[in-house]
């Protein structure tokens, strides 16, 4: 039997509370708030307390899903194929309707660096200032 705790940062909002993921025999089974952490010192909100619960969830998506035609079924795809599809469609929409026909939604669940890259993609590659945030959806 192996039981240990791995220090990480809560992914649910921008505060960045410190928490431990409890790992029992290779499975993540629970969360402890990190005592002594400069941000949350042993406290969490209800989302943080369940930060582990999606990791092994049976309904968690683990590959991209693509719909080959409108209304058709979703099928599993590689990241390569999915990103190619997204890039092609975004460029086609930009070509037909202009860059402001596209908007980008950043996320509190990403790091600052990832959100920086997203707005860079929006402004420099697509050419739009339509950048907003999931907290306003």
């Amino acid at each position: 039997m192996e039981y240990r705790n791995v220090l990480t940062t809560c992914i649910y909002c921008g505060v960045g509370c410190g928490l431990y993921l409890q790992v029992l025999d290779g499975q993540v089974v629970g969360t402890w708030p990190a005592k002594g952490h400069p941000l949350n010192d042993g406290r969490l909100c209800v989302k943080g307390w369940y930060a582990h619960s999606f990791i092994h969830h049976p309904e968690r998506l683990t590959t991209p899903l693509i719909r080959d035609q409108k209304g058709g079924p979703l099928r599993q795809a590689s990241w390569e194929e999915a990103l190619d599809r997204v890039a092609q469609r975004l460029m086609a929409i930009r070509e037909t309707h202009g860059p402001d026909a596209i908007a980008f939604m950043a996320s509190a669940k990403c790091t600052n660096e990832e959100n920086y890259l997203l707005q860079k993609l929006a402004r420099s590659i697509i050419g739009t200032h339509n950048v907003d945030h999931c907290a306003r959806l």
Binding site: M1, Y3, N5, L7, G18, Y20, Q22, W32
Partner: peptide, 17 residues
């Protein structure tokens, strides 16, 4: 088989077997 105690991790301690 093991002893549950605390281990120094990051900012403080964490339970460990």
């Amino acid at each position: 088989e093991g002893v549950l105690a605390l281990r120094t991790v990051g900012p403080g301690s964490a339970p460990h077997l």
